[in-house]
Nucleic acid binder design. Sequence first.
DNA 1: ATTACTACTAAACGAGTAC
DNA 2: TGTACTCGTTTAGTAGTAA
Lengths: 233, 233
Amino acid sequence: MGSLNTDSREWKHLFTLYKLAEMGARNRTIKVSTGYLAGKLGVSQQTASRNLIELEQKKWIKRTITPEGCLVRIADSGAAKLKKLHSNLRLIMEAAYPPSVTLEGILFTGLGEGAYYVTRDKYRKQFIEKLGFDPYPGTLNLKLTSEYDAEARSELETYPGIEVEGFDSESRTFGNVKCYPAVIDNKMKGAVLFALRSHYDSSVLEIIAPTHLRSKLKLTDGHKVKVEVLVLP
Amino acid sequence: MGSLNTDSREWKHLFTLYKLAEMGARNRTIKVSTGYLAGKLGVSQQTASRNLIELEQKKWIKRTITPEGCLVRIADSGAAKLKKLHSNLRLIMEAAYPPSVTLEGILFTGLGEGAYYVTRDKYRKQFIEKLGFDPYPGTLNLKLTSEYDAEARSELETYPGIEVEGFDSESRTFGNVKCYPAVIDNKMKGAVLFALRSHYDSSVLEIIAPTHLRSKLKLTDGHKVKVEVLVLP
DNA sequence: ATTACTACTAAACGAGTAC
DNA sequence: TGTACTCGTTTAGTAGTAA
């Protein structure tokens, strides 16, 4: 979901970069003494100096030392970092729904019908096209136990998702399905399916993935499974 | 210029807040374990836990501990911090010109005409109305010595500023003046004036302030003076 | 004036662990 | 499982100072 590849150590540098941008270093080469920058950052002159050195080593800025201070300009890679932060922040602040919702449930064995539905060709082709993977024939069923998770699921259902169209066969009707890309147990890519069938209530989450999650994640019934659902866009 | 009141220590907390917002804690109460958050932050579970405690002490988040994790929701003051960061970043990234330009020059004594011009009533009333202060009768003149500062001044002149309209008296014409709010030597509020008169070239900066800067800042001719010019909006 | 090195101090971090 | 304490270690920050 476009998360900044930034651990907490990098944020210190991003902060310095942000302050430099405030001084205009994104558009022009600015002249700034390490002492002045230190004041802006709320640190000592020595720390500001080291920060600039580290930023230069990261190639986030171009830097030239003069007797009157440093000539600094933010490089493309530095500007890209700021841009990413800005767009992520805009998403977070302006969207009506969050970029992701994390749910947790207990693994249980369903009626085995998931495999049948998921492998219907008209569904399967759309999964491949719209989700980017060919689903393993079967669904992973999670029982949401806590009140929080059930509520979060209900709310999630109101957010826009990937629409997979239903169809009619000779014998019956296959309804529309709403999908959300998801990360299962922090490791495996997959998707959450909504309204595939109606006989599970809102306390159940159905998941598909390109692989057999039960064996890949060494899961058996009763295991607690964490699902990070990625909301669009 | 609307700078985030954030020293480098607060930045770390802002990072945690940002990650919580990514998880949806701005709109809803989310359930998150300190271990899971730790993974998102790239720190240990203990550090994540401490971060949450500190965020709560700052009143940036509401937090309830349950046996399954923490229920977290970003409080108004926390959301305000994110909002401020976002709007500052938007200004920096989307504006054609930077929020501020810092210049440096050597103090010199002018012809003493500044006091005359500044105290003309039609100018003075506009200064009070548009700059928010009644200027001390006199201007502080700085000679920009380095090539960098002269260039920065030229570029600054192309940015939009506060327009003070000229007028005609019986004897002569008083031209339009463009002003920018400024901070002199990191301490005193004032404004930079452009095109007040034409007999100074582009290597001179004229400054007015509500007080007598020379005495307030203990300045004499030859002193190096730093001016942070604030560009609109 | 500057920058930025070395040596030291303060703060943040994380391992272990209690609850 | 969870959270969060203590405490030893690591890292970041500063003072002094050379260039």
